[in-house]
């Protein structure tokens, strides 16, 4: 459970306050995959950072009884002048791992990230896809109850995305996800609940479809959002609805019944690409 208790978060821009969350009290259940929805600048990433403890609210508290990951995004906390190995070592150290634990984490990350020789190259020279692979591999070696994913899987090639999706599916047994992505298709495939942010308020929807419906209604009402942007969102959702049967890239489905079948398909795809 993640509890927002009267949380207010704002940024000051040109002397005026822009509220991301205004007196929000909310209880978000964990144990399910949650998508954070909202238009650009609504504060999706900020909300994720608040939950991950990377930022503090201006007033109120965000608390949880779960172990929550740091926000897994592209602006991850890697020092560009250090190598991937040194960065991984640092993250292990600030979490107080023992020497043996660090050793096994290192072996796992080397293996999973598939960076090869680049593992001993400064992270500053990495492409965004390589960074994403490193962030992802590192986070997978930690036992978190909730993983916060901020547009991480939107970069990287097909192989990485498939791998990430498969890992998320496997992860479902022991952890849940909170997901920020502008790609409604991806969100709809991997999440079963939604957290909608609009005008400083946050609302939780247990049902994904209802969340998306409200989100689109909100966008329609809101002026100033370009027409084509809106159109793309709708297109994507309808496309997903239509292509339910087609074996796209492997992806965790929210519905329990299709889960097993999906995973089998995913495994097959995975072995084909190997």
């Amino acid at each position: 459970m993640i509890i927002f208790d009267n949380v207010t978060k704002y940024y000051t821009a040109n002397g005026s306050r822009k509220y991301i969350l205004k007196n929000v009290s909310l209880t978000i259940p964990t144990g399910r995959n949650i998508a954070i929805l909202g238009p650009n600048g609504a504060g999706k990433s900020t909300t994720l950072r608040l939950i991950g403890g990377a930022e503090a609210p201006n007033s109120g508290t965000v608390s949880s009884d779960q172990m929550i990951s740091w926000p897994l995004g592209l602006a991850s906390g890697f020092q560009g002048s250090l190598t991937a190995r040194q960065n991984v070592l640092f993250v292990c150290e600030i979490n107080g791992f023992t020497k043996e634990e660090i050793k096994s984490v290192m072996a796992y990350v080397v293996d999973f990230s598939e960076l090869g020789n680049y593992f001993d190259v400064a992270v500053g020279k990495f492409s965004s896809g390589m960074r994403a692979r490193l962030t992802f591999a590192l986070s997978m070696s930690f036992r978190f109850d909730v993983y916060l994913v901020d547009e991480l899987t939107s970069v990287g090639d097909q192989i990485f995305r498939e791998k990430a999706n498969k890992a998320f599916t496997a992860l479902k047994k022991r952890a849940s996800l909170m997901f920020v992505s502008h790609n409604l298709k991806v969100v709809k495939e991997s999440c079963d609940s939604a957290l909608l942010l609009r005008d400083g308020a946050a609302e939780f929807f247990g049902d994904m479809d209802e969340g998306i419906f409200e989100y689109q209604k909100f966008i329609k009402e809101k002026k100033g959002i370009p027409e084509d942007d809106l159109g793309r969102h709708q297109e994507e959702t309808t496309a997903t609805a239509r292509s339910k049967e087609s074996p796209l890239i492997s992806s965790p489905k929210g519905k329990e019944g299709e889960k097993g079948k999906e995973r089998k398909e995913g495994d097959k795809n995975g072995s084909q690409t190997e």
């Binding site: 107080g96 634990e101 984490v105 999973f112 930690f142 978190f144 496997a170 190997e274």
Partner: peptide, 20 residues
Amino acid sequence: MAELIADFPIPVRKKSPWLV
């Protein structure tokens, strides 16, 4: 191919703020 999720995942321990 690497395993999808680490089978040894290390629990992130909660510690006293000072120690952290």
